[in-house]
Design a protein around this nucleic acid. Structure first.
Lengths: 215, 215, 215, 215
DNA sequence: AATGAATGAGTGTTCATTCAT
DNA sequence: TATGAATGAACACTCATTCAT
């Protein structure tokens, strides 16, 4: 028996099927956590979603909380990866910020449940996992902060901008979308991203004479 | 014991004492809900916080959920009241927005737990209460939206600003503070409010050259 | 301080008032026990009926169960007393039986709650009290049985009548009225008593040629 | 797990085992309800009777009240069924009445607890179930009343007999047996039924001289 | 690969009762 | 004479989790 990522892994062919079903289970958990909240969603709800018996969940999951952990880890990994890429890329800062906002929002379209759960239910993690995830969040934030500092240094952003506060504001703007998206409207993520970027950037960037038309 | 409107009414002086203790109980509940979440906070935790037996809570509370209701109602009532006042006042729109942001944030200083609970746990309310509170939230939002529309009409804000989206963005900015304030820093609310207002307004207002005189 | 019936008794004048209020309390308890059942009726319900605070009940009552005891005792005492009188009286047995049935039913009109509670809730008494009451019930039953044996001996009742079974049947007939009286009809107790007596006696008495018209 | 009509359906063989155990659980509940009363019997008591943990009850039972419902439904269904059959049968009315009394009493021997619980604890049902059961009771009563009216029309029963009162009296006679049977004696149900029938019928039937031939 | 059966620790809530005032 | 405040023991019920099969 091999160990991958600290998990016992079954034989050759079955392993693939197991993995596939495991992801289905995770998806179902994410869907229910997202819909009802982690505490209110019961293992019975998740099992019903999958059409299996409650006890069968435990063939795939070590515990309910471990499912939450996995979901949060997958979500934060995505954030960390694209923020890293954007930070290191070579383009104007405003372009970077627009890209970042777009990428942050597009996660909602790709795996809506994972990211909603990550945002709203990571507080329900156990201490250890919460701190591990928290570490990653701070990595994401510091990537964003780096970009903003680059912008300030380059003169593209206001010199008096508080980089920490601006970072938190930017992320708050992005995260807020998850709450009303699909409830209040079904507008395309791209349009929403553009509007948010306009609000953030046109205030953050220095020395603009007037509203740039086609931005 | 007299009955007025089906509710037990206590005498003069005792009534005061009861009310005072009732608010202490509500505060303790808000503190625990805020710290652990509504579902995870048990009535035992709340009672311990007050130094009384769990069953004694029910001398003051009809139920755990009714406590949540009260907390949310007190919170949203505050928002509705000041937003109404600001909307109807006669001052430049940017001044109104700065005032609004400041008022929204100052609530954190007054009753931090009430507003955190309101933001994070109103989803745990029963259907009836949630809808009642939802009604109030929409009133608050429409007050904010009104102010933004006034600004657009008056030419103080960008003509191409989407008023709905701008409203949600503004509130997201304000609400995000509750998450990190007192954790990440203990800076004065006033300074935070000014920074957020700068980020929001300088992007939202049209035709500014670089002016930051009296901001 | 004197002791009457094992209870501490207060001073001169106040004693009368106390006793009067005590009976009011007992009445209220009987009313609620009768309406909701002993277990389902709470001390709060009883206090509300009296317009006093729950805790104030305990100025008059040692406990909820003691109230039930008192109620049952008052009820059974009534039964024992009139059955004794009728048994010892000198009249035809059928007259005695008709009188007994009438007396048993008339209790419903006099103190409906006490007797309903006695019938339906004496099983909720503690062991000691239940046995004490049970003793009294057996006295009542044996008075009735005596009358029936008198009738058999005198030839007025069937010789092959099983006296024990006939006693139980007679009392069952009487007790059943409490269940539907005032629910299903408001006919006079006298008429009901006559009908029941007819059903019981015309079967129990021997050698009747045909239905006696005016009985 | 398949879902049919919203209810979980088990496979072939296990289904049988489940059903069997379910009935054991219901029996245990009936036994405890009958011994202590519905309110006083706790789920812990019932579980102890079965030798399982209290929580395990809820694998079989939706709630304590639902158990009571089931018990009452099973009981009343029996009454309705045999009373229907007897009413429609073609035999002398007195034979019908004797049969009815016998059938009513024989239920005590089959499932003593179910019928005691039905008689004494149906008042503890929730409104909905109580009304549903009440409907059935009225069906039973009206079947009995029909038989009595047949008898009156046919001249077999007294013309001045009040059919409603006679019905209630008959049922009271039958129901009363549950209270003392097995406590006071262990006589055969048949003998008891005969005695009760004699008491009821010989009063109810008209124009008998002194005849007790084949009774 | 999945489940039937069961459990143990808890959860909110109720209620009779107490006692200082 | 009555009550405000509090309690302790119990209660029905829930739920994540286990394990033999």
């Amino acid at each position: 028996m091999q160990l991958i990522n600290g998990e016992a892994v079954r034989g050759r062919a079955p392993e693939k099927k197991y993995r596939a079903r495991y992801l289905e289970v995770l998806n179902a958990a994410a869907k229910l956590f997202s819909a009802k909240g982690y505490q209110a969603a019961t293992t019975t709800h998740i099992a019903e979603e999958l059409g299996i018996h409650q006890a069968s969940l435990y063939y795939y999951l070590k515990s309910k909380e471990q499912a939450l952990e996995q979901i949060c880890e997958i979500a934060i990994d995505g954030y960390v990866r694209f923020s890293q890429a954007i930070r290191k890329s070579r383009q104007p800062v405003t372009t970077k910020l627009r890209k970042l906002i777009f990428m942050h929002l597009i996660t909602l379209e790709l795996r809506p449940n994972f990211f909603k759960v990550f945002q709203e239910n990571r507080k329900d993690l156990g201490d250890q996992a919460r701190h591990r995830i928290g570490q990653q969040i701070r990595t994401y934030e510091s990537n964003v902060e780096s970009i903003i500092r680059q912008g300030i240094r380059a003169g593209a952003l206001r010199a008096d901008l508080n980089p920490v506060r601006a970072t938190l504001a930017l992320l708050a703007l992005c995260n807020s979308v998850a709450v009303w998206w699909h409830v209040r409207s079904d507008e395309a993520i791209q349009l929403i991203a553009k509007d948010l970027a306009d609000i953030f950037i046109k205030g953050a960037e220095s020395g603009k004479a007037a509203a740039k038309p086609g931005v």
